[in-house]
Simulated scan of single mutants.
Amino acid sequence: MAIKKVLVVDDSKTELMFLTDLLQKEGLQVQTAENADEAYQRLAQDKPDLILMDVVMPGKNGFQLTRALTRDPLYADIPILMCTSKNQETDRVWGMRQGARGYITKPVNAAELREKIGALA
């Protein structure tokens, strides 16, 4: 499956702008959401090929949202790549146990992000 559309879920406008710019330069279409509720709205409008998921957000955090999405038959086929400042091994393991297909830490390295997306395609 080719990855063309990406949903970036992050409560930081700076991160959303940075990741959007980075992904658009790779030729990808990008939608953004600042929390779980917005993420569900975007998913209902247009199903992406990949979700980049922050962990620390108000309301439902990224671990909880990842678990909910990977268990939902409507969205379980969308790969989720955690993209977070939480850089402990326990965080990475927990993210993967929630259903994430990859884990990348901030500050995001463009080459590493490209590699992770390429591996999921």
Rank of each mutant, 00 (worst) to 15 (best):
L120M: 11
V108E: 05
L22I: 07
T66F: 11
A119D: 01
S85W: 02
E38N: 07
N109A: 13
E115I: 11
Q41D: 14
T70M: 14
D46G: 13
N61G: 12
V9H: 07
R92E: 03
L52D: 02
Y40L: 11
D11V: 01
L65Y: 04
L65H: 06
D72N: 09
K13H: 12
P107T: 03
L23F: 05
G27I: 01
I78N: 05
M1K: 14
D72C: 05
N61F: 11
D21P: 05
D72M: 04
A36F: 13
L23P: 02
D10H: 06
D21F: 15
G118T: 08
M1V: 09
E15C: 14
K60F: 04
Q24I: 02
L65K: 03
G59F: 06
L23I: 00
D10E: 02
K86Q: 10
L65P: 03
K13T: 02
L19R: 00
A119V: 09
R42G: 01
A110P: 10
Y40W: 11
A110G: 03
D91K: 08
K5A: 12
R71M: 06
N87T: 04
D21Y: 15
Q88K: 14
D46P: 02
T70P: 00
T20V: 04
L19S: 01
G62D: 02
L52S: 05
A100G: 04
R97A: 10
T105K: 06
P58T: 02
D11P: 01
D37V: 10
K4V: 11
Y40I: 08
G62W: 06
M82W: 03
T66G: 07
V8A: 14
L16N: 04
R92F: 01
R97S: 12
S85V: 12
R71W: 05
D37L: 10
T20E: 14
D21K: 15
D21H: 14
D11F: 08
E89P: 10
G99C: 06
D37Q: 14
V6L: 09
E89L: 15
V93M: 07
A33D: 00
V56E: 13
E34S: 15
Q45T: 04
K4D: 06
L113W: 13
P73S: 09
A2G: 10
T32K: 07
D72Q: 04
V55Y: 07
R101T: 11
R67Y: 14
G27C: 07
Q24E: 11
G27H: 12
M53H: 09
I117N: 09
V8L: 11
N109C: 08
T105C: 12
M57D: 05
A36S: 05
Q29A: 15
T70K: 15
A121F: 07
I104L: 15
L69M: 05
E112A: 15
E15T: 13
K25T: 01
G95L: 13
A39D: 00
R114A: 12
C83M: 10
G118W: 13
